[in-house]
Design a protein around this nucleic acid. Sequence first.
DNA 1: GTGACATGCATAGCCTTCCTATGTAACCTG
DNA 2: CAGGTTACATAGGAAGGCTATGCATGTCAC
Lengths: 158, 158
Amino acid sequence: MPERTTAIPGPPGAEGGVQDLGVALLVSAARFTRWAGRAADAPMPQALWRALSQLEELGPLRVSALAALDRTSQPTATALVARLVEHGWAVRAPDPEDGRAVLVDVSDAGRRQLHEQRAAAARALAPSLGSLAADERADLARGVAVLDRLVAREAPAG
Amino acid sequence: MPERTTAIPGPPGAEGGVQDLGVALLVSAARFTRWAGRAADAPMPQALWRALSQLEELGPLRVSALAALDRTSQPTATALVARLVEHGWAVRAPDPEDGRAVLVDVSDAGRRQLHEQRAAAARALAPSLGSLAADERADLARGVAVLDRLVAREAPAG
DNA sequence: GTGACATGCATAGCCTTCCTATGTAACCTG
DNA sequence: CAGGTTACATAGGAAGGCTATGCATGTCAC
């Protein structure tokens, strides 16, 4: 094999960095997400799991707020909510303060489902993560923390 | 704000870490991928960009090898290759050693497109990454490195 | 050789997940 | 209460992915 030079020149030494870091991060995150999504045979499709997580984290939400948080269009959020409600994982209630708005929240069944989903994901990933050295896991955890802050910072004000 | 407790509870038991790390990683990676994918108005759809990157990194590949690397089904890889070829970003050649097989490789146009894609992604992410502190970026870079190793380790033998 | 199985890719048909554009009902402002 | 704005729903369509299946080529036992 001709050993092509790598397509993603990592930030080996100097700064080189912000540009490469962004691309490397995007590539790695995308590949990992894809891999993990297939490895874990999910009880719930990704889109629903994402939406349901947002609801659990951030309480009752309007459809449009959910759309903003999930970075989807409002129609997509409407559809997601409809499917969640069909499954019994979320409930819709009129907003007492605004007749146009709808407040969506997780149901108890949704919470249970979410825990199961997370457990399945954890099971699927455990072997791989377990094969890492302790300091690698620590690096990964710090990276995740930064990533969380990054994404949160870009989040809509709500 | 009611301050709901975090959505990602840990297993009460012993080490606590690996499980949570996996779920947190998956959640963050998925959210980041989704956010970045929308923020960068991509000249090329994600699926094509993924496939093309693999081709550039790993040289001429059989369709089935590409499928394995990209964690897609073989029919999906066939479709991706067809679209890449349509755009002129990849070329197909018969495998001289196996009449059934096809060797796919990036074209020069594909390489140019890929560089442009990466530049666009870098531009889109630069402001966010730039807003991080230097040590945060370093943490992130280390995390990405670990993630790369993790995904690579799970990759098919090829 | 030649029949039987294995392998590599293509095709068919379907589902999910998104999008934009547009409609409708409820709010607000003068 | 007319006109604009806001919040959600609906319509229609594209992309990306899957399983199942078909077809051609290799491989191996005999």
